[in-house]
Design a protein around this nucleic acid. Structure first.
Length: 439
RNA sequence: GGGGGCGUGGUGUAGCGGCUAACAUGCGGCCCUGUCAAGGCCGAGAUCGCGGGUUCGAACCCCGUCGCUCCCGCCA
């Protein structure tokens, strides 16, 4: 017999079906047993008259919750059953894998253990409907992201994660042994995306792992995460990149809302709002003024960009003034940006760059890149870099590289914002941080 | 790297100088004509993170240490 998913049972009234899932609750009474079974699609009640099969009844009595079971039985309508008005009258039951009792924690309890404990037992934690929904949403999100990119002329690339030379600053790089020498884990596909521009691919994207050796202990940092990156050629300036991002995000939000809007509201209490276009864009200097006028004191030394408190303040301003959850903070000073961001021709102390804040959280950084080799080299030297380690990168710009720009976004940060999750650990399958390497 | 908060049965909490350390939930047993957040009764389960100190007396105060967590720095 084929397995039936629980969500489809209402179409199987009076049929005998096979259901596989986990025993969420067992109500073991004098004459009857009720088993609440859960699969990826929902819950169903299975009823068993003990008299009909005393041997089976005895077996059921020994079952621990969360045991993996396969049952067969007839689906019957029963209005008095609060769970969907139907139940399965048990015929056979196979214990595929009994669960030890007690469980490390109660999956359906009113209160949850702290995040760290749940990370130790992540596979049990993931059985709960909320985490399950997070990853259903992630799947839809990635599908929509790809769809949009493919519809808009982007090609998917997969760049190497093992690198021979530290790119960019090198400060947050994981070093590893590589045969007799050493190598580094990529902390961004940045240079390789840009190589795609030099290669004439026009538009590329990558969804892949990114490694940061940052000893950061916050609710929004990880040492390994999935980056959503794209790069596009023949642009006029960074506004072309922002135009693309906001259309792309709108498309993603719409897809997630269509597919999961109701479940998100029900389980997470979030009413997903598809963002309107265009997103507000505020130059950094203006943002600093606004934040000051709102009475927020930037910390000493923060005269050229915003700290997280400032970011939350500007987000609040945007929410009040434009009723928008997103804001691009643009035209960052060169001191706060890497050497490859293009400078503004009319003010070389500023860059053609932006960060995207979503509900005050930084989820994305982008810019037009400097594609003129001489200029790029000069900027690298100015920022105190030596050109030798980036020689390969600089070479990309020797034989006809078009003007281009792009962005990088953290997948889990986007999920956090989308679903209103308080901690990035809830938005990632398995968390990696300075003190977390297992499971 | 800097700072704050928290470590008490499996889990979540209460207790904050003088108790046999309390409650909820889970777990085990018994009872219950169909339960459905099931219910009722009984029971097991904690040397209060670890080490030192103060005190007649420490889960409680002090110091150290470890773990977790959040904020800042940095970033996605």
């Amino acid at each position: 017999m084929e397995r039936t998913m629980i969500a489809e049972l209402s179409q199987c009234i009076d049929q005998t079906v096979k259901i596989s899932g986990w025993l969420q609750v067992l109500r073991d009474q004098k004459s009857m047993q009720f088993l609440i079974l859960r699969d990826r699609t929902g819950l169903v009640q299975v009823a068993h008259w003990k008299k009909g099969n005393p041997e089976l009844a005895e077996l059921i009595s020994t079952l621990g919750t969360e045991s993996a079971l396969t049952v067969t039985g007839k689906v019957v309508e029963n209005p008095s059953v609060k769970l969907g008005g139907l139940e399965i009258q048990l015929e056979t039951l196979a214990v595929e894998n009994a669960a030890e009792a007690p469980l490390p924690f109660e999956l359906t309890g009113d209160v949850l253990p702290n995040v760290d404990f749940r990370m130790d037992w992540r596979y049990l934690d993931l059985r709960r409907p909320e985490p399950l929904l997070v990853f259903k949403v992630q799947t839809t999100l990635e599908k929509a992201a790809r769809e949009f990119w493919l519809q808009n002329g982007f090609m998917e690339i997969h760049s190497p994660k093992i690198m021979g030379t530290p790119s960019e600053s090198g400060a947050e790089l994981f070093e590893l042994k590589y045969f007799d020498g050493k190598a580094y884990l990529a902390q961004s596909p940045q240079f390789y995306k840009q190589m795609g521009m030099a290669a004439g691919f026009d538009r590329v994207f990558e969804i892949g792992p990114v490694f940061r050796a940052d000893p950061s202990f916050t609710s929004r940092h990880m040492t390994e995460f999935t980056g959503l990156d794209f790069e596009m050629a023949w642009i006029n300036d960074h506004h072309d990149v922002m135009d693309m991002i906001e259309r792309w995000l709108q498309y993603i939000y719409q897809a997630v809302k269509d597919e999961h809007g109701e479940a998100i509201k029900e389980l997470l209490g979030v009413d997903l709002v598809v963002p309107s276009l265009p997103f507000p864009r505020i130059p950094m200097l203006e943002a600093i003024q606004i934040v000051k006028e709102m009475g927020y004191d930037l910390p000493e030394g923060k005269t050229k960009d915003l700290d997280p408190g400032g970011e939350r303040t500007i987000a609040q301003h945007v929410k009040e003034k434009f009723n928008h959850d997103f804001v691009f903070v643009t035209d960052w000073p060169i001191t706060a940006r890497p050497f490859y961001h293009m400078r503004k021709p009319e003010d070389p102390s500023l860059t053609r760059s932006f960060d995207l804040l979503a509900n005050g959280l930084e989820i994305c950084t982008g810019a037009q890149r400097e594609h003129r080799r001489a200029m790029l080299e000069r900027q690298a030297l100015e920022m105190g870099l030596t050109t030798e380690p980036i020689a390969y990168y600089l070479d990309f710009f020797r034989y006809g590289c078009p003007p281009h720009g792009g962005m990088g976004m953290g997948l889990s940060r986007l999920l956090m914002v989308l679903l209103g999750l308080p901690n990035i650990r809830e938005a990632v399958y398995l968390f990696r941080g300075p003190n977390r390497l297992n499971p």
